[in-house]
Design a protein around this nucleic acid. Structure first.
Lengths: 171, 171
DNA sequence: GTGAACTAGTTTCAGATGATACTAATTCCG
DNA sequence: CGGAATTAGTATCATCTGAAACTAGTTCAC
């Protein structure tokens, strides 16, 4: 791993400095996490895009609306971990394609309530099995315990990261 | 979790359809992975940007060059899992700041060999401890076994995803 | 009630990103 | 050798993204 070519005139940091630093990209968790996530996201994104013309943000909205019924964009923001701009844009795309309906909020005229249209529900019913098939394909060979453990650790990293963002830096 | 408000006039899919689909965003691994990764990447990216004016791609190059000595951009591509355009741009930025040197490849005039400059090495020595401190802060509370397991599972997901990209779809 | 402070959502603008096309050098192969 | 096919790296363009400004509606406090 570290032994890949370096013969060609390389003048790497004397290994003492590296050992002192203790830092290798391949062993660095944030890097590993990012690379794995990009690989998976890319796969999923291409699948939804190619087959249904949906972006990932759009798919997330559909998914949450299918679970949760009618929601305002603000509620969607908190349920999807996307910012309001992204939700707004994704919603507009879905609206154009009549996959969601938008009705005035009964008590707040600024707010709109989004819900899956019949057509949107049909699309959801079509995509959901595919989404699950991808998940299955990805975790094939892992035990249910491993999958649970993985999810738990991911949550942990996520909350650690958000905590650090707020309460600032470790150095 | 699924019980968050939905009282407000919601007409969620009858739960039978959901159970049949078996799909909940919060339980969907690619989503969890993406959210966790974004949180961590955002944290790291901001840290490097604010304190050193480095983008994550630039930091990756520095890191690999510190490990591996002098490398061509092509070698950097394969070591960083970034495409050649990204490597090219990151390299240009580092070059502008004289953090890397670029010399002609002895045997191939198309190719350039990049290496950390003295200044670049200084910067690396300064950042590395911070990077490790962030990693430590993120995995605080996890046992070494858990961390190893996590890395192993991430690798597994990554290779499953790339395999699926090539050999196409599971449905 | 009326103005200050706030929230929902959209728009705008600037920088990041990715696919594609391009240039220059190299290799392959007859 | 000499031209077709490849490769290293860059530039171009169109899209995506995020931050901040903006609009419209609401709440709060006096």
């Amino acid at each position: 791993m570290t032994l890949l070519r370096q013969g060609s005139g390389g003048q790497a940091l004397r290994s003492s400095a590296r050992r002192e630093a203790g830092l290798t990209l391949d062993a660095y968790l944030p890097y590993r996490l990012s690379v794995a996530s990009n690989a998976v996201s890319g796969l999923i994104a291409r699948a939804y895009q190619d087959r249904f013309g949906l972006s990932v943000p759009q798919w997330r909205l559909i998914c949450v609306l299918a679970e949760g019924g009618a929601l305002t964009q603000g509620q969607l923001v908190s349920k999807t971990v996307m910012d309001k701009v992204m939700v707004s844009r994704a919603a507009q795309g879905l609206l154009r394609r009549h996959l969601v309906s938008r009705t005035a909020h009964h008590a707040d005229a600024r707010s709109h309530v989004l819900a899956l249209s019949t057509q949107g529900q049909r699309l959801y019913a079509e995509i959901a099995p595919l989404a699950l098939a991808y998940e299955q394909a990805l975790i094939a060979g892992l035990s249910p315990d491993e999958v649970d453990g993985l999810k738990r650790l991911l949550s942990r990293l996520q909350s650690a990261a958000t905590a650090l963002v707020d309460s600032d830096p470790p150095a």
